Simulated assay, not measured.
Amino acid sequence: MSGLEGAREFTAQMSIRTGHWRLYVVLPNRIEVWPAYLFGRAIPTFTDRTDALSVLGFEPVPGAEWEWTEDSEIHDDPTSAAVLIAAIRVRSQSGVSV
């Protein structure tokens, strides 16, 4: 059994890059590209994010909430542009193999 087959929860993250929001599910120890969904320029609503996770075969873990954090484009540079990152715990939907 691979490390992912026994895992039930993952982290989904969303950030903005080149003017578009991108949601992706972090799947540790995988060589393949992580599942991702590209939004437009507007900040995706809670429903938009949940729908995108569903398209990718995931759903929020019951009781999980989106957490927002701020980072910078260039680490250790206080003048660097801010980067917003959102994260939530997710699980694969019933019947979806990860």
Results as ranks from 00 to 15, higher is better:
Leu38Asn: 06
Gln93Ile: 01
His20Ala: 15
Pro35Asp: 11
Ala64Cys: 10
Glu70Ser: 04
Trp34Pro: 08
Trp66Lys: 15
Arg41Cys: 08
Ala36Asp: 13
Gly95Trp: 05
Gly3Gln: 07
Thr18Lys: 13
Asp76Pro: 10
Glu9Met: 13
Arg91Ala: 05
Asn29Glu: 15
Asp77Val: 11
Glu5Pro: 04
Arg22Glu: 14
Gln13His: 09
Arg22Lys: 04
Ala7Ser: 06
Gln93Phe: 03
Ser2Gln: 02
Ser2Pro: 05
Ser15Gln: 09
His75Met: 08
Met1Gly: 02
Arg8Lys: 07
Trp68Ser: 06
Ala52Gly: 01
Glu9Trp: 01
Tyr37His: 13
Glu70Thr: 11
Asp76Asn: 05
Leu23Ala: 12
Ile16Ser: 10
Ser94Met: 09
Phe46Thr: 11
Trp66Gln: 14
Leu23Ile: 02
Arg17Thr: 03
Ala87Pro: 04
Val61His: 10
Leu4Ile: 02
His75Arg: 14
Arg49Met: 08
Ser80Ile: 02
Val61Glu: 05
Ala42Asn: 10
Arg49Pro: 01
Asp48Val: 04
Ser54Lys: 10
Glu32Met: 14
Arg8Ala: 15
Val55Pro: 12
Thr18Ser: 13
Gly57Cys: 07
Leu38Pro: 05
Leu4Gln: 13
Asp77Leu: 06
Gly3Ile: 07
Asn29Leu: 01
Gln93Val: 03
Pro28Cys: 02
Ala64Lys: 06
Val98Ile: 08
Thr79Phe: 14
Arg49Trp: 03
Leu4Asn: 12
Ser15Asp: 15
Arg30Val: 07
Pro28Asp: 10
His20Asp: 13
Arg89Trp: 00
Arg17Trp: 07
Thr18Gly: 04
Val26Ser: 15
Trp68Gln: 13
Tyr37Asp: 12
Val33Tyr: 08
His20Ile: 02
Ala86Tyr: 06
Thr79Gly: 13
Ser97Phe: 09
Val25Trp: 01
Gly3Thr: 12
Ala36Trp: 01
Pro44Tyr: 09
Val83Glu: 11
Ser15Lys: 04
Gly57Glu: 04
Ile85Asp: 11
Pro28Lys: 05
Glu5Cys: 04
Arg49Ala: 14
Ser72Lys: 15
Ala52Trp: 02
Arg17His: 10
Phe10Asp: 06
Leu38His: 13
Leu53Gly: 02
Val83Cys: 08
Leu84Arg: 12
His75Val: 11
Pro60Trp: 00
Val26Ile: 15
Leu23Gln: 02
Met14Tyr: 09
Ser54His: 11
Asn29Asp: 14
Ala12Gln: 00
Phe46Cys: 13
Ala36Ser: 14
Ile43Cys: 08
Gly40Asn: 11
Ile43Leu: 13
Ile85Ser: 10
Arg22Phe: 00
Leu27Arg: 13
Phe58Gly: 08
Leu53His: 03
Pro28Met: 00
Ser72Trp: 05
Ile88Gln: 08
Leu27Lys: 03
Ala81Leu: 01
Gln13Lys: 11
Ser15Ile: 00
